[in-house]
Amino acid sequence: MSPSDELNELFRRFRRSAWRWECQGDYAVDEAKLQRWRDGLPPDLEAKRPWLDFIRDLTATGKSWQRVRMLTEPLTEYLRWLIEQTQVNIDAGEDIRWIPQRQAVELGMPGYDFYLFDDELVAIMRFGEDRLLRELEVSGDPQVVATHRAYRDTVWPHAIRHTDYHAPSSP
């Protein structure tokens, strides 16, 4: 099973909560989506519809989907694009927050992405040079889970809600 398939299976199986720490300045993204943004065109919401429907469906059942995204300093083009694309995710039911890289480092946050599912399972994500997910390390070990719960509990109160975040102007 590919790491992406394994992660999708975890998305289908969690019962209460999914929480993500997202700290890469760039991820693999369809170049056409970025070009639409560069050209000043609105996002293709139809292409995003399956994800938005997934989030709406799971939050309608009482599950939570939260994430904190680290903001590189300076912001990458990807992050500037993502900031402008995030409101539709919020409208679908995600709780997305932002934290500056400097503050994340001060708080001791890890340099890798991870999901915490139901406070019981951790999925550490490792990306290749092509920015694609290459490895998923899943653990239910109580020590590993406790460490990642502590990361979440440390950063969450410091992260800025998307609706309160004011991105710097593009250069």
Score class of each variant (00 low, 15 high):
M1R: 13
S2N: 09
S2Q: 08
P3H: 06
S4L: 15
F14E: 06
F14T: 05
F14W: 08
A18L: 12
W19G: 02
R20F: 08
C23F: 11
G25A: 02
Y27D: 00
A28V: 15
E31A: 13
E31S: 13
R36P: 03
W37E: 01
L41E: 10
D44M: 05
L45W: 11
E46N: 10
E46C: 13
P50N: 07
P50E: 08
W51D: 13
L52K: 03
F54V: 11
T59W: 03
T59Y: 02
T61C: 03
G62K: 07
S64C: 14
T72A: 07
L79P: 12
L82H: 09
E84P: 07
Q85M: 15
Q87M: 07
Q87N: 13
N89L: 02
G93E: 04
E94G: 14
E94P: 10
W98D: 04
P100R: 12
P100W: 10
Q101H: 14
Q101W: 08
R102Y: 09
Q103K: 12
Q103V: 14
Q103G: 15
V105N: 10
L107S: 01
Y112P: 02
D113A: 00
F114S: 00
F114P: 00
Y115M: 11
F117S: 04
V122R: 01
M125S: 06
E129L: 11
D130C: 05
L133G: 06
R134W: 14
L136M: 04
L136R: 08
S139H: 04
D141T: 06
D141A: 06
P142F: 03
T147M: 15
T147I: 09
H148C: 04
A150I: 09
R152F: 07
T154E: 09
T154G: 12
V155P: 05
W156Q: 09
P157E: 03
A159I: 00
A159N: 00
R161H: 08
H162W: 01
A167M: 08
P168L: 07
P171A: 03
P171S: 06
